[in-house]
Design a protein around this nucleic acid. Structure first.
Lengths: 327, 327
DNA sequence: GTGAAAGCGCTAACAT
DNA sequence: ATGTTAGCGCTTTCAC
């Protein structure tokens, strides 16, 4: 059905090797014959068979991308970044969704391994040491760091520190914190940073414990926060923050007059739902792009030493209300 | 580095053909040798080279998915559906984002064509006749119908009709409609259905024209709606509806007391942002699954006659307020 | 039920 | 600058 390099070679009166060269643009073919070959190829509707090419070069021209949840806008943005950079590099992307299940990450990795040149693993839920390590392909982590692994991650510790500084500057000295799932690496970073800097800034930190990263989790967080003297709540992410705000409203607690709320991640949700929410903006698009760039580096030089790139977060301040006097 | 079928064959004391058979589970190999082969394979960390397999079978085990915008939760859900069904069928997904640009769809299609067994094209922005038709691979459209093409689409006409019936039942007889981009096929379906049924239901329809499918478009739609006697506004999608509600609020028009608003698509956004918004729920996850199922059918029987599957929409009613008296 | 051998379509030496 | 040739790792007749 589809024509082969032989057909084109025959039609153009050259050898298959020349056809191959014309398409691999090694520049090792005269301009004249190149045109001739390309013309015949177009006429016959020929394009190189990627499977055959791959069988011999060992390169697939594909990169794998594994994310916990495609429907989460946070990861959607990461994919867009990866996509953009990959398109430039003429690489296609194979995407896998693990439904937030850590154990599916290893499976996805293994099934992708033979089909791609490298894999980008966004916000892995697994323990890094549980991931298969005999895959023999480069892996770049996004928003997760681990010794000896390539990664590009936001500086979560610094981001949350800035949020705390901001809240402190507004005059809050009793701050509640609703942590997310305990497996969350970024959550761990945030918690540690918060503990460290609260003391330093003279802020009394009320840890509300781990809540689900959902609207419901936010409702619970709000109730817990109201049981403390806190006048500000820092939430694991925007969804939790939105849930908390909803509960505050229901309980007659005015935000931000009676209670400041700070989200994290700065997803589109926060802008649509609560334009006044201050959040810690975490780079996503940029992280996706950077991850592809790192992958290209490992592909170009397999022995390169792993890079752990750190991207800055940006505090998006949309609330500058001073705290109320609460006894 | 990675071992080949020959290595396994040697280790297991069989021929490469037997190894191949053991992995292709044709059942054409004795249970004993099968175990032996599989054991050796595991020991050596062998798995079949997909490129080689593909070169000979012609099947890649990949399916392509082209969407206008990965960051749009609407498409994210479609991907999740595709993903789920594809995983069951042990197919990987190559995803391409066209950034809402029609002309990129043809490019994406072409670049995917040689790498996949079939392509799913979600909500194409192109004119169908502009798409390349010499690709020689099956294509299934989502949320778009065209003669002679495989497709699975929501019944947009019926969905919007139900919305209109609901609004009419609430007592509104002056209804405004903010249409989306004129290139939108689903939008065209909706507009036609609305015109048709408005007359039938005795509703006076005020067409506000085409607005951008954004928050800003919603702001404009609200202003336009207030210039008519309409007591209800049906919006192209939830984002427009949310934008409109924001403007209504700013202009002191109470929703739903003074103005009913109906969205479309029932995205997560609408639930988070405005829990009271009535919307037309368009199947996404299901559409994605169904599309893979159709693709499997074309793959199993290349001569099968194209199916155009229609999925029902679901009216999500969260507002039952009667209309105000407006002169 | 299993083996031997012939390619799938391409690229990469090696010649010329 | 171009042609010849030898595979890449697998599946698939065809024998046995």
């Amino acid at each position: 059905m589809t024509s082969t390099s032989r057909d084109v070679a025959r039609a153009a009166g050259v050898s298959v090797a020349t056809v191959s060269r014309a398409f691999s643009e090694a520049g090792a073919v005269s301009e004249l014959t190149r045109r001739k070959v390309l013309t015949e190829a177009r006429r016959l509707g020929y394009s190189p068979n990627p499977a055959a090419r791959r069988l011999i070069t060992g390169r697939s021209g594909n990169i794998g991308l594994i994310v916990p949840d495609l429907a989460n806008p946070f990861f959607a943005d990461i994919i867009k970044g990866v996509q953009r950079r990959a398109r430039e590099a003429r690489q296609a992307i194979l995407v896998a969704d693990t439904d937030e299940q850590a154990r599916l990450e290893g499976d996805a990795l293994r099934s992708l391994a033979r089909q791609v040149d490298g894999v980008i693993l966004a916000s892995p839920r697994s323990e890094i040491e549980d991931l298969p390590d005999d895959l023999n392909i480069p892996i770049v982590l996004i928003h997760r760091q681990a010794p000896g692994w390539w990664s590009v991650s936001a500086d979560f510790a610094e981001g949350i520190r800035q949020a705390l500084v901001n809240v402190r500057a507004l005059g809050h000295d009793n701050v509640a914190y609703a942590a997310g799932p305990i497996q969350s690496w970024s959550g761990g970073m945030r918690t540690a940073s918060l503990r460290h800097h609260a003391a330093e800034l003279g802020v009394c930190l009320y840890e509300l414990g781990s809540v689900a990263p959902t609207i419901d989790g936010g409702l619970a967080a709000a109730d817990l926060a109201l049981a403390t003297p806190a006048t500000a709540l820092i939430a694991y992410n925007d969804v939790v923050a939105i849930g908390a705000m909803r509960r505050f409203a229901a309980r007659g607690v005015s935000v931000p007059r009676d209670m400041s709320v700070v989200g994290c991640d700065n997803t589109m949700l926060s802008q649509l739902a609560v334009p006044a929410l201050t959040t810690v903006g975490v780079p996503r698009y940029e992280a996706g792009e950077a991850a592809v760039a790192l992958l290209e580096r490992t592909l170009a030089d397999a022995d390169a030493v792993p890079v752990q790139q750190l991207l800055p977060t940006a505090l998006v301040i949309r609330d500058t209300t001073a705290p109320p006097r609460r006894s």
